[in-house]
């Protein structure tokens, strides 16, 4: 069975869409998967925005991950939960989509994205425009069958302490993975939200060792992906304590390919238990 619209698709119904302006979607997290990382909740908000923006440009372009100024993790999403995805778009044209959005479980927000910007690429370079248009229509009309997603394979990484409050490491983008069949069929690239998840794991030891804790990850800021990550690419990771200010702290985490910075983000911490 094809992985397209299965292995890395997190909107299974569009409840309303003012194309390029506002969209409300829904995603039922499959019961049978072990866990659903918060980074994938963020991905579902982004995919909802993508649907509306692609419809706005007649499926000639599609957005890819770029910038998320603020990502807040304010709750939990578990297997079996239904995410309601509300997104407002301030821009959707051939160059970029700009949006903010919230994922709800019941009446509680679990994740918020603010001031996100995704550059548009030519759809036909990455995916089949006809198939994507058909998928959009299916989501609007009757919705897709839930439970298509079977989880993602974890990606191994190396991490060593460089100095107090600083770690470095590396990882290789998998050569093969089911999600490449969906992200994207014509040009497989490692999803930015999986890199986000990997970064959170990479800095876990820094968080445990950070003075004044225990600290809880409450989100990420200034998240930026600057270049595509094809299968098999080796990337270096670095993380260092950025700021400790009373009840809040942040860790700057970056990835590099050689000398070029490929991505960056600040992991935001608070002294509280979610």
């Amino acid at each position: 069975m094809s992985d397209h619209f299965r292995a890395f698709s997190f909107v299974d119904r569009i409840l309303s869409d003012k194309q390029g302006k506002a969209i409300v979607g829904q995603y039922q997290i499959p019961d049978l998967i072990r866990k659903f990382p918060m980074s994938l909740v963020a991905e579902s908000i982004g995919q909802c925005a993508a649907m509306s923006s692609m419809a706005a440009v007649n499926f000639k372009h599609r957005p890819v991950a770029g910038i998320a100024s603020v990502v807040e993790f304010c709750g939990c999403a578990r297997p079996g939960d239904i995410l309601k995805l509300e997104v407002s778009l301030t821009r959707a044209d051939e160059e970029a989509v700009a949006y903010s959005g919230v994922a709800w479980v019941g009446d509680k927000p679990v994740a918020k994205l603010s001031n996100c910007l995704g550059p548009m690429v030519l759809m036909e370079d990455f995916d089949n425009p006809v198939a994507v248009r058909k998928r959009y229509q299916l989501l609007v009309d009757s919705g897709a069958e839930p439970d298509a997603f079977g989880g993602v394979e974890s990606v191994d990484f190396e991490s060593v302490e460089k100095s107090d409050g600083e770690r470095e490491g590396q990882f290789t983008v998998p050569h093969e993975a089911a999600f490449f069949g969906d992200h994207f069929p014509r040009r497989p690239v490692f999803p930015g939200t999986l890199l986000m998840d990997l970064k959170l794991k990479f800095v876990a030891d820094l968080i445990v060792d950070l003075e004044g804790g225990p600290w809880t990850v409450v989100g990420m800021q200034d998240v930026k992906l600057r270049s595509f990550m094809p299968p098999g690419e080796l990337l270096e990771l670095s993380g260092k304590v950025d700021k400790i200010d009373g009840e809040q702290a942040s860790i700057l985490v970056q990835s590099r390919k050689g000398k070029r910075r490929n991505s960056s983000a600040r992991v935001m911490l608070e002294k509280k238990i979610l």
Binding site: G66, A96, R226, R260, R261
Partner: peptide, 13 residues
């Protein structure tokens, strides 16, 4: 300053 095309979008935004 090693800017990429995404940085131009970011700066303009």
């Amino acid at each position: 300053l090693d800017a990429e095309s995404i940085d131009f979008l970011d700066i303009v935004f």
